[in-house]
């Protein structure tokens, strides 16, 4: 190819990207122009029929088929073999009762997708250092595909049906692998009832993520107290039940395990200790004293609806004791479902 011909082809590629912007198909970043043969390449990686509905918003008369998901996964920059993960992500999101309200909400929540199983390594889904990104195509584009489906297929666009007050940083970029290899505990998918080693996606809609940096103590319970302080902040206390989850670093997880804590023990400890006092809630204008309701007692407000509603997963590098508290959206509770990933030829 001559240099001139090369320039012309690249100029054409650039104008195709501009065309996508003009048509309103992008989330603000450049997209990959999608052709019919590309869509077929993607569909070849799933055993699911192209007209199967994988997402719907009945109140908007919108639904998304496998084929439309494939188009938007290609648009997002996914490789064809990522499509089964995108589809499983929607399977998981559909199980969350709050998901139909999420996309239009003032809260502007982000889906956190957690991938388990050998597929993490096959597709290059990062589960160690810098797990929340950037730098890893699978993590970035699988999460982005979910957002492009919301925009293009479900028709929920900012300043129209999407009414996020601020939205959350990283919305549609949160896809992580669980660091199963360095976690001291059973995998998340296994905790949620799938056989160990199953390729699966778990989803949770988040309001935000907040770090807990505790490289200060060798006492596991002191680490839990530090995490409890973040979980119990009044800003996140809305309604009778807020909730929380934990993306633990390897060091914190191993420290807790070495002190004899299983995942269920961590959940139970935090459920019991994450209580905000009536006086503190009143000082923030959120007083609940004297009211009846789940989670309210004479001490104050329990920040977690139940021990098992606290997501516990392990991700990141084993290089510092820094963990993330995540904040679920809505009050209906997390589905606690891990959806198996169906791949072509794997049935």
């Amino acid at each position: 190819m001559t240099a001139t011909a090369g320039h012309e082809l690249l100029d054409y590629a650039r104008s195709a990207i501009e065309h996508a912007y003009e048509r309103g198909w992008t989330d603000g970043l450049p997209v990959v122009p999608v052709t019919a043969p590309m869509v077929e390449e993607f569909l070849a990686h799933t055993p699911r029929p192209r007209d199967e509905v994988i997402a719907s918003l009945p109140h908007l008369k919108r639904r998304c088929t496998v084929e439309q998901a494939a188009v938007n996964a290609a648009l997002a920059g996914c490789r064809p073999e990522y499509l089964p993960v995108v589809l499983a992500a929607w399977d998981a999101l559909r199980r969350d009762r709050v998901s139909t309200a999420a996309w239009q909400s003032t809260s502007g929540p982000a889906p956190l997708l957690i991938v388990n199983g050998p597929i993490r390594h096959e597709l290059g889904i990062n589960c160690t250092g810098g797990v929340f990104g950037p730098g890893f195509r699978a993590n970035a584009t699988i999460a982005r595909a979910v957002g492009l489906i919301v925009r293009n297929v479900l028709g929920v666009r900012p300043h129209e049906l999407e009414q996020a007050t601020q939205g959350i940083p990283g919305r549609f970029s949160l896809c992580i692998g669980e660091n199963e290899e360095e976690s001291p505990w059973e995998s998340l998918a296994s905790e949620l009832g799938l056989p160990e080693g199953t390729d699966a996606v778990t989803a949770l809609l988040l309001r935000t993520c907040e770090f807990v940096d505790n490289r200060h103590t060798r006492d596991a319970e002191e680490v839990l107290w530090d995490i409890a302080d973040t979980i119990s902040r009044t800003g996140a206390a809305i309604g009778r039940h807020s909730s929380a989850g934990l993306v633990l670093s390897v060091e914190h997880a191993q420290q807790l395990a070495a002190a004899g804590f299983g995942k269920a023990d961590v959940q139970r400890w935090l459920y019991e200790h994450c209580v905000r006092s009536h006086a503190d809630l009143e000082r923030a204008g959120k007083g609940l004293r004297g009211l009846e309701g789940p989670g309210i007692d004479e001490h104050g407000l329990h920040m977690l609806p139940s021990p098992e509603q606290l997501l516990v997963t392990v991700a990141g590098a084993r290089n510092a004791a820094i963990s993330m508290v995540v904040r679920p959206f809505g009050f209906a509770g997390w589905s606690r479902v891990a959806q198996p990933i169906q791949r072509a030829g794997s049935e």
Binding site: V34, A36, K61
Partner: peptide, 17 residues
Amino acid sequence: MFDAMIDPTANPAEAVR
């Protein structure tokens, strides 16, 4: 010029009147 590009958007599942 870009007819070969697939439109990723979708119309409502039901016709609306």
